[in-house]
């Protein structure tokens, strides 16, 4: 199958990154490149990507995999010049969720994303000095977006009055 010109750009990007780092890269479709790397390479890879023109950190996301005992982090970077979305994926240990902060590269933009993920998933971003909660007030339970936090149980326990007969269907 003949390659269309746009996808050549994506393949070249993977070649450029793999010449410097150990990665697994795929071109999902036009303008979408996914790259998996180790936790130690992540920051260096992001810095390299920024030099290639990926100035915009669109988002950082965490996926919780309790069975595999890992957190998967995805960094979505957009290049205004090449018009490609590069997603950098890495895995960290769920029992000791620590990773270096991306603040040296993406400054305030990374700071606020990391602050959110620390609150919702309990990931420690080392080097981020301001990880105060954003959304939840006086919350002292486990990070609520983790898969093992059962919010249905929590709501049942916390918000229904057991002595009230009319609320019985909710907590029973």
């Amino acid at each position: 199958m003949a390659e269309i010109p746009q996808q050549r750009k994506e393949n070249k990007l993977i070649e450029q990154i793999s010449s410097k780092f150990e990665i697994e890269g795929t071109v999902q479709r036009d303008r979408r490149v996914w790259v998996t790397t180790s936790k130690d390479n992540l920051i260096a890879l992001c810095r390299f990507a920024k030099r290639l023109g990926f100035h915009h950190l669109s988002a950082i996301s965490v996926t919780d995999w309790p069975q595999e005992k890992i957190f998967e982090l995805t960094y979505h970077l957009w290049s205004y010049s090449a018009r490609i979305l590069l997603t950098v994926k890495t895995k960290i240990d769920r029992a000791d969720p620590k990773i270096d902060s991306a603040i040296p590269i993406f400054q305030e933009n990374a700071q606020i994303h990391e602050r959110e993920l620390h609150e919702l998933f309990g990931v420690q971003f080392e080097g981020n000095s301001d990880l105060t909660p954003l959304f939840l007030e006086d919350w002292d339970g486990p990070p609520p977006f983790r898969k093992d936090f059962n919010w249905r149980d929590y709501v049942r326990q916390k918000y229904y009055d057991r002595s009230n007969e009319r609320e019985k269907p909710y907590w029973e």
Binding site: H55, H56, L57, Y80, F106, Q107, N109, I112
Partner: peptide, 11 residues
């Protein structure tokens, strides 16, 4: 400024 806008993640 433009450089601030990009740094701060404005879109």
């Amino acid at each position: 400024k433009l450089e601030d806008a990009i740094r701060l993640g404005a879109t």
